[in-house]
Design a protein around this nucleic acid. Structure first.
Lengths: 349, 349
DNA sequence: TTGTAGGCGTTATCAG
DNA sequence: CTGATAACGCCTACAA
């Protein structure tokens, strides 16, 4: 690390003649009362047209901007939404966040983002931070370590609306992908390609969507008169080692699977690496599928068949729900459809 | 998209007996004045030990938390940092953000994040949003469209400290990777592998680090008695089409380059796709290098030789600088070292 | 050692 | 139509 001396910036701190004017400043200048200014600024019906114009004009000229802190203190709402998610570096989450941000800004809300880093402690801290920041509500996707949701129930008890997405909790409003259907479609696709022994590397049971995907997997098998073989279902805690171990377990089976449906694309990537190291040709000897359409799935070789989730829409819906709750309306859980993305790893026709 | 009816949540909004107690509540209960409570809570020296204890005890029991809005309104600082960056979905930026967040939280600051989406208009809007939110300072990486920095100068004039990272602007404090050195190392590596005609797909000239990388490229050539051939330097605006067009231009040269150093990994990925489609074997017929070590570079085939930037440190340093500025100290621009990551695309030994 | 009063910038209520 | 006044929750000079 090298350093480069930089000029002082203190000279930057000169004040402009009318920087940060307040309502009072405007009132004084116009020789009217602050409350009149306040009303004029928000087009209160019974303010004289002339005063209203004068006020707005000066406000514009002086570049007046209301002090949100004061407004919030008064109104008891900050128009800020607190977000807690596992990890921004996951492409899926960053896309959801884009959806959240767009919608939130459009609705006049700011967002305060925190990452749990898949860590339960940090998830708790995040709640504290956002609570102190007086956010109007929470949008949450829980960490993979989170098994109890008591901390979120506390939030509710304190009067905060909370909406979950992707990784949800019972009894909370949610927005999710149709994980079950997505899994089902993917497994159906394997079956159409002639697979008979389809394995599943499942995610941690405490993650809601892992349960859904497992369910969809089993459902597809049953609907096609294939029996659900517990030997073909293995679990990963999503660490690289765990992913590989799970894959190895499947490879050590007396009878090899002819396809593997992985909890998500990262798991699939690790599985692919291991399978290839063991000399198997993916898409030929064994088909592979993932979930989420992370960038990795397009870049890896062979490219990965996966399930695309509509992240932007999920993000937007989450905000919609939350704002409804903030406004005291009752809400409805939303499930967003998924599409299957067929690529090389599930065999070329 | 399907919907699922969800229970009403209105029953959640019951208030607890002492939820959100204020300093006044505590004062009333203890029959002392609010100011005493305020002082006791912050260990003001000349408050009676007994009162101090009683106050703290009750504050704990009642779960008192100071209202940040009121505090901020009073102190004229929010302990919030505003972030503007091009795109969270870029892994590099999300990692930097992790660094920023960690450091900021440790220093008692919250962060308010906005994405410009590489869009100049949205960058301007972001400034407005963060200004109104009364952030204490800005951390910025400019959009690829940003050619004038007047809007940031305005910020300065209004008294806001601003630190740039990665994509910086003249006369502003900054934290950057050593882009020049990184590029130089990569090109040196090509030269050691025997390359004589090394091309560069450069980024937009208005992005600071694109200029630096170009400079490092030329520097390496000169230091190795290779002449800088303008035909071997092409530009991309970072769109997929532009990346491919730039690559095509190089391939149409009467004499092919034997290596291409790309502005970043995404460019390299598009270049690789195109080269392979044209029947060239990367790492054999032509060497390829990128910049930033995005996940794509590890997943693509062949894997990409690239330059690793220390994103976490960059993030932390940015916060350090900004906090210094907030506290009125003068600051020093920081350049963080890079490492070269040799992989398959630059030839196997 | 503690209390009082005023203010941070805005809005809402109540008068006029 | 407009103006006082009080209040949101906290802090701090000044007083006692």
């Amino acid at each position: 690390m090298t350093f480069q001396t930089f000029a002082h910036f203190s000279y930057f701190y000169q004040k402009m003649p009318h920087s940060n004017p307040t309502i009072k400043d405007i009132a004084r200048e116009l020789k009217i009362s602050p409350s009149t200014v306040s009303r004029a600024l928000k087009d209160h019906p019974r303010i004289g047209l002339r005063t209203r114009e004068k006020v707005k004009e000066l406000a514009l000229e002086w570049n007046y901007e209301p002090n949100q802190l004061a407004v919030s203190l008064q109104n008891k709402r900050t128009n800020t939404i607190g977000i807690i998610l596992p990890e921004l570096a996951f492409h899926f989450f960053s896309k959801i966040l884009s959806g959240i941000e767009q919608k939130a800004l459009k609705e006049g809300y700011n967002i305060l983002i925190t990452q749990s880093g898949e860590n339960f402690e940090r998830e708790m801290e995040a709640i504290g931070i956002l609570t102190r920041a007086k956010v109007d509500g929470f949008i949450v996707s829980s960490s993979k370590e989170t098994k109890s949701f008591a901390h979120f129930n506390n939030l509710i008890k304190k009067g905060f609306p909370v909406v979950f997405f992707d990784r949800v909790a019972e009894k909370f409003p949610f927005v999710v992908s149709n994980d079950e259907k997505g899994a089902e479609m993917l497994v159906n696709h394997f079956i159409k390609r002639g697979c008979k022994r389809i394995a599943h590397i499942a995610g941690p049971k405490n993650i809601s969507n892992a349960r859904e995907r497992l369910f969809g997997y089993a459902e597809a098998l049953r609907n096609n008169q294939l029996k659900v073989d517990q030997n073909l279902i293995v679990y990963t805690n999503l660490d690289k080692e765990s992913n590989i171990e799970a894959t190895a377990t499947l490879l050590n089976l007396p009878q090899l699977p002819d396809a593997i449906f992985c909890y998500n694309d990262y798991v699939a990537y690790d599985a692919a690496t291991y399978l290839q190291r063991k000399g198997l040709k993916i898409g030929v000897d064994i088909l592979l599928g993932g979930f989420a359409n992370e960038p990795v799935s397009g870049y890896m070789s062979p490219s990965l068949t996966t399930v695309e989730q509509n992240a932007l829409i999920i993000g937007e819906k989450t905000v919609e729900l939350l704002i409804k709750m903030i406004n005291g309306e009752s809400v409805v859980g939303v499930t967003v459809d998924t599409q299957i993305l067929v690529r090389e790893s599930s065999g070329t026709l």
